[in-house]
């Protein structure tokens, strides 16, 4: 099997046109889930086929692609998807957030503020924010049509009543442009504020569920909350052990079987560029010399 047997970026042009039409509709109706005829891809459903189809449809020969999973460029599935596009599209790839024109992501939004020339493509497993409240698509589509979102507020309220907190820490629902409640994909709620008024175009692809949705640049995105229980992001009470960053999202790394832990930036490009600029965290002091 050799790559030249396939079209640029794998998908045939007809399929790309179909997906682009869905993307345009999604941009025109921010937060609305547009059904599209998702194709079988040569990687499994649930492993980013929606994001891959969106990326394949918008990628041009001059684009520079970055792929991250859990914020990192070197996680196995990110490596696999990046290699897929290197092979089928031959585009330049990068790990530098600001050097990329298209960033495909799973579970994170980069720490570096995105710019107007960039597109962020999210891989989405379950696009329907109401799915775990109402399993039927026939019902949830009606609820969206009528902006009938009471059930979601009841769920968040029950969380507070039971746990004292809104117990949703990722895939935290947002209201887009004052109309549609949207699932931001399973990004931690830490990343939710980055979606609001973002300069970059944000596209969401769900391959198995056959849905595409979008947040156009500079759109109002509000995390659902209550006046007396306002939305709060997860905060870490320590800096990154490697680059010393305060206020970045941290991964917990288990050091031994006696409870030792270290916390490092989940965004590997952010962390490495800080270290290159001389920033050091508490566990990285000797390396500075």
């Amino acid at each position: 099997m050799t790559a030249p047997a396939y079209n640029f970026a794998y998908l045939d042009e007809q399929t790309k046109r179909m997906i682009r039409r869905a993307i345009l509709k999604a941009i025109a109706v921010p937060g609305y889930q547009v059904p599209f005829a998702s194709r079988e891809m040569p990687m499994p459903y649930g492993w980013g086929t929606g994001g891959v189809q969106v990326t394949a449809s918008i990628l041009g020969q001059k684009d520079v692609l970055k792929v991250i999973d859990q914020g990192a460029d070197d996680t196995t599935n990110a490596v696999s998807i990046r290699q897929f596009f290197e092979k089928t599209a031959g585009v330049e790839t990068t790990t530098e957030t600001l050097a990329a024109t298209v960033i495909q992501t799973r579970h994170r939004i980069p720490e570096t503020t995105l710019q107007g020339h960039q597109v962020l493509v999210y891989q989405v497993p379950i696009p329907e924010p109401l799915r775990f409240l109402e399993p039927r698509e026939t019902e949830t589509r009606k609820m969206h049509a009528l902006a009938e979102y009471g059930l979601m507020h009841v769920k968040l309220y029950e969380d507070i009543a039971r746990h004292g907190h809104i117990a949703t820490t990722y895939a935290y629902p947002v209201l887009v442009a004052g109309r549609y409640v949207m699932d931001p994909s399973p990004t931690p709620k830490f990343d939710n504020p980055k979606m609001d008024d973002c300069a970059a175009l944000q596209l969401f692809g769900a391959g198995r569920e056959k849905r595409i949705y979008a947040i156009p640049p500079h759109t109002k995105v509000v995390s659902l909350d209550f006046e007396d229980h306002p939305f709060e992001v997860t905060r870490f009470d320590r800096p990154c052990a490697l680059c010393g960053a305060q206020g970045s999202y941290l991964d917990e790394v288990v050091m031994d079987d006696r409870g030792a832990r270290m916390f490092v930036c989940s965004d590997t490009d952010f962390c490495e560029s800080r270290q290159e600029n001389g920033h050091r965290g508490p566990l990285n002091q000797e390396a500075a010399e």
Binding site: P44, T75, R108, Y170, T187, P188, L250
Partner: peptide, 25 residues
Amino acid sequence: NVQATGFVEHLKLPHYVDFQAELAL
């Protein structure tokens, strides 16, 4: 079953970012 196996098996992909959010809460 192609859809089902993909989605069931995607659970073995890294989820440490979301798991960290749950741990913190």
